[in-house]
């Protein structure tokens, strides 16, 4: 059907776009952008938020609402995918079900390797999340590592259990606690997502007020959500 349509509008669109981008490249001077906001934040971030990692202070203090939005985008994407997959699997798509059941377990090395990696992935994920306000990393990155920790055993041994109920609980409570910390800021300091608990001394593990708590909420939510999504994509489980 698509091939019978005339292609010239698409060609015209691409030509126009190319013209636009060429004009951009001609006029744009790289390397000397007026980074007003960035420089201003660099100057005050450590003092105002107590976070040694300036990126974390931007993500969770100055632009905390954006991060809540990103968290919700990930949630919406996972929910939408679950919705579509649910309908697809229910529409008599029995072969996916059969495939999961007959999939043979992986070899000895892969299975033992997965078992061995599990605790290390957990520790690494927790470390990246909890040190998000000090070093590069944080909730999204650490959450992805946590998700991998739970998904790798599933790949090695498809029949091994994954407690979806617990994952749902963790995900829901972690997401809710991000919003509730924001509302606590509203009640305590008068502004949504206002930093709480003081700044502490910059560079300490226990510093930067509520930023580590928000990192933890993000990490748990992203971790449980990604793990649940990957397992859902892997096929329906018999429960």
């Amino acid at each position: 059907m698509l091939t019978s349509r005339p292609r010239w509008p698409a060609l015209l669109f691409i030509l126009g776009l190319a013209l636009l981008l060429t004009a951009l490249l001609r006029d744009l001077h790289f390397g000397n952008a007026p980074m007003q906001v960035g420089q201003a934040i660099n100057g005050v971030a450590a003092h105002e938020t107590g976070a040694a990692n300036v990126v974390a202070s931007v993500l969770l203090a100055y632009r905390g609402l954006d991060t809540l939005g990103e968290l919700a985008i990930l949630f919406a994407a996972a929910t939408g995918a679950g919705l579509v997959l649910g309908i697809a699997f229910r529409n008599g798509n029995g072969e996916a079900q059969a495939k999961t059941n007959t999939e043979p377990p992986a070899g000895f090395i892969l299975r033992k390797g997965a078992d061995l990696m599990f605790p290390f992935l957990l520790i690494l994920g927790a470390y990246v999340i909890l040190h998000g306000h000090l070093t590069p990393g944080g909730g999204f990155q650490g959450g992805a590592i946590l998700a991998a920790a739970f998904f790798v055993p599933q790949l090695a041994r498809p029949s091994s259990p994954f407690n979806e109920r617990t994952a749902h609980w963790v995900e829901a409570l972690a997401g809710a606690s991000f919003v509730l910390i924001g509302i606590a800021g509203l009640a305590g300091a008068g502004w949504f997502l206002a930093p709480l608990l003081g700044t502490g001394s910059v560079g300490e593990l226990l510093s930067a007020g509520s930023i580590p708590l928000l990192q933890l909420a993000i990490g748990l939510k992203v971790g449980s959500e990604l793990a649940g999504l990957m397992i859902a994509l892997h096929g329906p489980k018999e429960t």
Binding site: W169, E171, L173, A176, W191, F192
Partner: peptide, 21 residues
């Protein structure tokens, strides 16, 4: 005026908690 923020925070909270209700 903070009601404007609640108009975003509360539906999001409800959406996150929906699986537990």
């Amino acid at each position: 005026m903070n009601a404007s923020v609640l108009m975003i925070a509360l539906p999001l909270l409800a959406a996150f908690l929906l699986p537990l209700t």
